[in-house]
């Protein structure tokens, strides 16, 4: 899929995500809007995945370590054919398999259960290590939030990935500059991320993570060292009144706000 089409898919995912969060009355819409362009690029351009055989051994892997933005992943997976798109309407409903955080034993296409932060990258290091041990062709991607990089387990994994020479691993940091309670800079500022990752022996690419033309080549980068994409994004991207506002981490739009957001996103469609 080419850039224009990917941008259109991303806008459709945004529109469905907004509705799902509004209908469910809960969700993490800010961090979903920041990550959706990258999810669209992964699932509709970059990843070798097989919706009919979600656990095929040679599939590429993607782990959403920032598991609280599960809704965006669900919509992307459904749109890619892993399960029926109609099922998105069950998000957070009693007994729905579409929980607030993704479950690999219930939702096809999910690789590991995430939710507590700082878990996805170590698991991704293990997957990439298995790939290297067996000379498998698959590539492993993992996306963390920028606030999530405050978790020490990530830095354990960053060291190991470098030590093990995992050129088959890509870490995407959704650098939207806001965490749950405040700006990253006002909490525990792990930025700038590039020099830290480089010091740990990683290749680093900085991109505008809401710009498809920059996202795709970064995801397709291959080298001998693990690769980190510092994706500069906007929390709430695409919806004017949400953008870069910390309270939209997990706020739910009221009817008026919903209608305004629908109008903005529909205009872009």
């Amino acid at each position: 899929m080419q850039t224009k089409e990917l941008e259109r898919v991303a806008r459709q995912i945004r529109r469905r995500d907004l509705q799902a969060v509004y209908d469910a009355g809960a969700g993490h819409i800010g961090g979903e809007m920041s990550a959706i362009d990258i999810l669209a690029a992964l699932y509709f351009r970059v990843l070798k995945v097989y919706p009919d055989e979600p656990r095929r051994a040679d599939r590429d892997r993607f782990i959403l370590s920032k598991g609280h933005t599960a809704c965006a992943l669900y919509i992307t997976l459904a749109k890619r054919g892993f399960f029926p798109e109609e099922e998105i309407s069950t998000f957070l409903q009693p007994h729905s398999r579409l929980n607030g955080h993704p479950n690999c034993n219930k939702v096809p296409g999910v690789e590991t259960n995430t939710g507590p932060l700082g878990h996805g990258l170590p698991v991704a290091v293990g997957i990439a290590t298995a790939g290297k041990l067996t000379s498998a062709d698959y590539h492993t991607y993992v996306m963390t939030g920028d606030g999530e990089m405050q978790e020490g387990s990530n830095w354990e994994a960053i060291m190991a990935a470098s030590q093990f020479g995992l050129g088959n691993l890509t870490l995407i940091i959704d650098h939207n500059r806001f965490q749950q309670g405040a700006a990253l800079a006002d909490t525990n500022d792990v930025a700038p991320l590039r020099p830290k990752l480089e010091a740990f022996g990683w290749d680093v690419t900085e991109i505008n993570g809401n710009e498809m033309a920059e996202i795709v080549p970064a995801l397709e980068h291959r080298g001998s060292r693990p690769h980190c994409i510092v994706a500069h994004t906007n929390k709430g991207h695409g919806i004017s009144f949400m953008q870069d506002r910390v309270d939209w981490h997990h706020k739910v739009p009221n009817r008026e706000q919903y209608e305004q957001a629908v109008a903005e996103l529909s205009e872009a469609l």
């Binding site: 170590p122 997957i127 020490g152």
Partner: peptide, 17 residues
């Protein structure tokens, strides 16, 4: 690095080990 050790274990299992 025990947290990473257990996560890496889960990843290795995902990779068929």
């Amino acid at each position: 690095a025990e947290q990473n050790m257990v996560g890496v274990g889960a990843g290795l299992a995902n990779g068929g080990r």
